[in-house]
């Protein structure tokens, strides 16, 4: 039996008006897995993952039967232990469209913070590691990037910095929340390749949220399909794609543009 790195059972999330946002969602991520969560905006993908990492604000009503992170049941842990476990064991790569990097702090002053905090390393060691990781994620001038503010970097560069930052603590799990949104297709491809390398070469397990079925089909070995706050279908990617059972999945799959349709001309 492979190690279970993330486990969430029967998650329910209600907003302040008692609307059900997530209904009875259960998720698992095992070692050596690249798992995708697909669904349209508002289907509860991000909420579920944030709930698994205990990142949801307190005013949302969050209930679940069980929640494990890296084999430890979260319910038994103190706040401090929770922070340590998640902060050092899980890397989070956010959407690129918003300011997850602090706009007023230079990259070098924020990239190593988690590493320093969790490993008690000094600043010099952190910067050295950051430089190595920036090179690894395909940045050619790591020193220049380290001395920049986020605003001085392009979208693709920022996303690489986000990934490098997530890798600083050598996490076993990377959770990526639509990490290729707002990137052009070339950069998108490079970023996906990067995730794939981390998965195949470094043995990092990846939980990948996306609404892009093409990407999910190509990279993920298992998927969850979410619709209106519920997981409507889950299983090995090849099986789900070959034989979808839920009507929503079928509809989704029909939306994938196919080469056969001959409609791949670029617009404009």
């Amino acid at each position: 039996m492979m190690n279970r790195l993330l486990h969430l059972e029967n998650l329910n999330v209600k907003d302040t008006h008692n609307h059900e946002l997530v209904k009875g969602v259960s998720l698992d991520l095992y070692e050596h897995e690249f798992v995708g969560i697909v669904g349209e905006s508002g289907s509860g993908k991000t909420l579920s993952v944030k709930a698994a990492l205990h990142l949801l604000p307190n005013d949302l009503g969050v209930t679940f039967e069980d929640s494990e992170v890296l084999g430890k049941s979260i319910i038994d842990l103190s706040d401090h232990e929770k922070r340590r476990l998640i902060g050092s064991g899980i890397g989070f790569v956010p959407q690129n469209t918003v300011a997850f990097l602090h706009p007023m702090i230079k990259i070098k002053h924020q990239i190593g913070d988690a590493f320093i905090y969790h490993t008690k390393a000094n600043k010099k060691e952190a910067l050295q590691k950051a430089e190595e990781l920036l090179v690894k994620v395909g940045i050619k001038e790591p020193k220049r990037v380290l001395h920049s503010y986020p605003v001085q970097l392009s979208g693709g560069m920022k996303q690489r910095v986000n990934i490098a930052m997530a890798l600083m603590t050598d996490p076993k799990v990377i959770i990526a929340d639509e990490p290729t949104t707002a990137l052009d297709t070339v950069v998108q491809k490079q970023v996906m390749q990067l995730f794939n390398d981390l998965y195949t070469n470094d043995g990092v397990s990846i939980l990948f949220i996306s609404h892009d079925l093409k990407i999910v089909k190509r990279f993920c070995n298992r998927i969850y399909v979410m619709h209106e706050g519920k997981v409507v279908e889950s299983g090995y990617t090849s099986e789900v794609f070959a034989d979808p059972t839920h009507s929503y999945t079928k509809k989704l799959l029909r939306l994938i543009p196919s080469l056969k349709s001959g409609r791949t001309r670029r617009l404009g």
Partner: peptide
């Protein structure tokens, strides 16, 4: 959103408020 990242990174409230 950068405050969400400080939670992901597991910083204490004091640290994430003081610096970020």
């Amino acid at each position: 959103d950068y405050m969400l990242m400080t939670s992901v990174n597991g910083f204490t409230k004091f640290r994430s408020i003081g610096k970020y």
